[in-house]
Structure formats: C-alpha cells, structure tokens
Computed example of a mutant assay.
Amino acid sequence: AAAAALVTFPSFRTLGTSLLASAGIIGIVAGVAAQSTLSNLFAGFQIAFGDMVRIGDTVVVDGEWGVVEEVTLTFLTVRTWDERRVTLPVSYFTSRPFENWSRGGAEMTGAVFLHCDHTTPVALARAHLEKFLTTCDTWDGRGWDLAVTDTSPTGITVRAIVTAKDPDDLWTTRCAVREELVGWLAREHPGALPKVVTAPAADVFEEAGADR
C-alpha cells in the first residue's frame, strides 16, 4: 500500500516502483519456501475430512507395520510393533500408496511356508494342523488350509493359511503354527525335513554303477 501511494507522486515514482518489484520477488520467495508447509497443511485437511487414516488404525509404512497414535494437520505418528515411534508428514499418506489393515475390519489372513522333502506326509500334516488350531487361542476359527504350493528337484513348499481377528493375533498364530509343524515333523517324520546333498557328483555316479 505504501509503495502504491508513492507511485502517485512523480518524485517518488521510481522508489515506489522498486518497492513494488521487491514485494513481488519477496512474495515469490516466500511462496516457494512455504510450499512444503502448505502442502502438508492441505494434506492434513484431506486426511481429516477424507477419513483416510484414523487414530488406532494399523498401517504399513516403509515396510514396517504399526498403529497410528497421533494425527495432526502437519504430521502423523505411528507406533511400530517394537514400540518405536515413527513420525511422518501427512503428505506421505496422500502422495504414496500405503496399507491400512483396519479399513473394512481388522480381521486378517496370513500364510506360513515350510520347505520339506518330497516324502512329507501332507495329509497327516493337514490333519495335525487342524487339531492344533483348535487349541490355539489366537486363531479366530474363520478359516485355515494346508497345501503344497510349489515343488523343486530338492523338495516341496508347503503353505499353511490361518486367520485371526487382528494383526497382533495373526503374527502370534503364524509363529505358533510354524513352531508346531516344524516340531511335529522333527519328532514324528524326520525324513520329511529338507536335506542338503553334500556328496560329490562323481561319488554318486560311482555308487549307482556299483549297485548295478
């Protein structure tokens, strides 16, 4: 306003023009400097009114999962499973894809993979898993399965699927199933455990020729 007033006087017109130009340059510099802040602010409004993330939601950010502990207009705090706090700008959730495990319900399905020998009694392992899940407190009873999902010259891949009411229980259930199946195979069917061939190929061929 002062610069515009000075422009009306012929003797101060040059000074007023310089002040107006300087004000324009300062405005541009301030706008560029505040771009990140304004971006976070608008992203905060988008999250607040778009209901993208809420306090208590279980999310996966940067490959780690945790629970949203605090949401503001400029930043968001996630408490990871090992009690660390990860603070992220809210623009992270509007500019990158992320997983929200709490949208539509917290129930989850997880898988446990075991590498076994070709002689593994899959039917017996399936029956044992069903029996074990009835005693597992963290299994929610919605579903389970056990099947061979892959094979190779050295063995097979067995996949067990289990369900739980939330991510914490799913993690506990997966660990319990993995420990139980490995322990059961070691006790009842040690031949089903994966084998590592250490004999040289020449010795194997010589033994095969001797058997003939």
Rank of each mutant, 00 (worst) to 15 (best):
P89W: 12
S95Y: 08
D57H: 07
S95D: 06
V112F: 01
G104S: 11
A127T: 15
A106P: 04
P89T: 08
V112E: 03
R96F: 11
A123P: 00
G63Y: 04
L129E: 05
V78Y: 00
L114V: 09
T72N: 13
K131G: 09
E64H: 13
L88T: 03
R96I: 14
W81L: 14
C116P: 00
E69L: 11
L114W: 01
R84D: 15
G105E: 09
A127I: 09
T120A: 15
D82A: 08
E107L: 12
T77C: 04
D51C: 04
T74D: 10
M52A: 13
L129K: 03
T135E: 14
V78S: 00
I55A: 08
P97Y: 00
E99W: 11
E99F: 12
F93M: 08
T74A: 12
S95H: 14
T87W: 06
T94Q: 01
E64W: 11
C136I: 07
W81M: 14
T94G: 01
H128R: 07
T72D: 13
T77A: 14
T120L: 13
T74R: 05
T58P: 04
V53T: 02
V67A: 08
D51M: 04
E64M: 13
V112S: 03
M52G: 04
A123I: 13
S91Q: 05
H118I: 07
V61N: 02
E69R: 15
H115G: 04
D62E: 11
V61S: 06
L133I: 14
W65Q: 08
F93C: 01
A127M: 06
R103W: 06
T134H: 12
K131N: 10
L124C: 04
T134G: 14
T74N: 09
A106E: 11
T87N: 15
P121M: 08
F93R: 06
R79D: 01
